[in-house]
Simulated scan of single mutants.
Amino acid sequence: MDFLSQTYYFDFESDEIQEFVRDFKDDSLLPKEKAKLLYVKVRDSFRYDPYFLSFSKEHFKASNLVKQKKGHCIDKSIILIAGLRSLGIPARIRLAKVKNHIAIDRLTEKFGTNELTPHGMVDLLLEEKWLKASPAFNRSLCKMCNVQPLDFDGENDSIFQEYNNEGKEFMEYLEDYGHFEDVPLDFMEANAREHYPHIFGNDKNKKEFWL
């Protein structure tokens, strides 16, 4: 797969995504520069919010997500992937399990753990090299957590910060589920149900949860 195609989820030909990336459709910008600018825009335009879970197909369409003011890591990764593909940069979704060592009390209370899964990030191809980029944590959240905002230089992986500004453990990667050709909705739901059964209860049909 070339990881440039439009899909149901990465619907970058939509008016919403085209408008979002309009400023980067500049032939004077190299692909690396476009990727760096788009990464920052996705990182800081949407407030990170892990407290709404949805497993409906419609929710994960990039054209729907980009209209929101907040989203979790998978939401923001989908927006970034759609934007990158619209700019001719191959991109795909990667999922993992992470541990937040400075988890706020509400997060630990709602999930019953400081382990978050599935965590979404982006694989993108620049100069024949696949790189990882994690646009989840916006600048204001990083300030609150006393950690430097995660940047992307277009040459190296940009994955969660291991330590905060005081040298305390911040984020830890526990498991890498690999990359996927499209949004693996069934895998995501099964993974979440396995790790957070108390959230779902006995309702096998409910697809959205406010925590």
Rank of each mutant, 00 (worst) to 15 (best):
G167D: 13
E169H: 12
L124K: 10
V42I: 11
K110E: 04
S158M: 00
D49A: 07
F187L: 08
L124S: 03
E172K: 08
S134Y: 05
F209E: 12
H195R: 14
S77P: 02
E169G: 01
F20L: 14
A82Y: 14
L4A: 13
Q18H: 12
S56P: 05
I89F: 09
Q6K: 10
N64I: 03
A136E: 11
L150W: 00
S86F: 09
S140K: 14
K168T: 08
K76M: 09
I102F: 08
M121P: 03
R47L: 09
I79Y: 02
A96F: 15
R43W: 04
S56E: 06
Y8S: 02
V122M: 02
V98C: 13
F160P: 00
D203S: 12
F60N: 06
E58K: 15
F12Y: 15
E189V: 05
D157T: 06
A190K: 12
D186P: 00
N64K: 06
T7M: 09
P90Y: 14
F24L: 12
F24A: 01
M188R: 04
N64R: 07
N156L: 09
F24I: 13
K204F: 10
A136V: 11
D23W: 11
Q148F: 11
A96C: 15
P50Y: 14
V66H: 01
G83F: 05
V21S: 00
D44G: 03
F46G: 00
T113C: 04
A133M: 01
L80R: 06
D105S: 15
K99S: 00
S56D: 13
E109N: 07
V122W: 05
N165K: 10
L30R: 14
E162G: 12
E162H: 09
Y39Q: 03
D75R: 04
A35C: 07
K143H: 10
L131W: 10
K34I: 02
L37R: 11
L84K: 07
L126P: 00
L87F: 01
F3S: 03
F20C: 10
S45K: 02
P118W: 05
R193W: 03
L116S: 02
Y196L: 05
I81D: 08
L53Y: 07
F170G: 04
E172S: 11
H59N: 00
F180R: 08
H198I: 10
V40W: 03
H195Y: 14
K168V: 06
H198L: 13
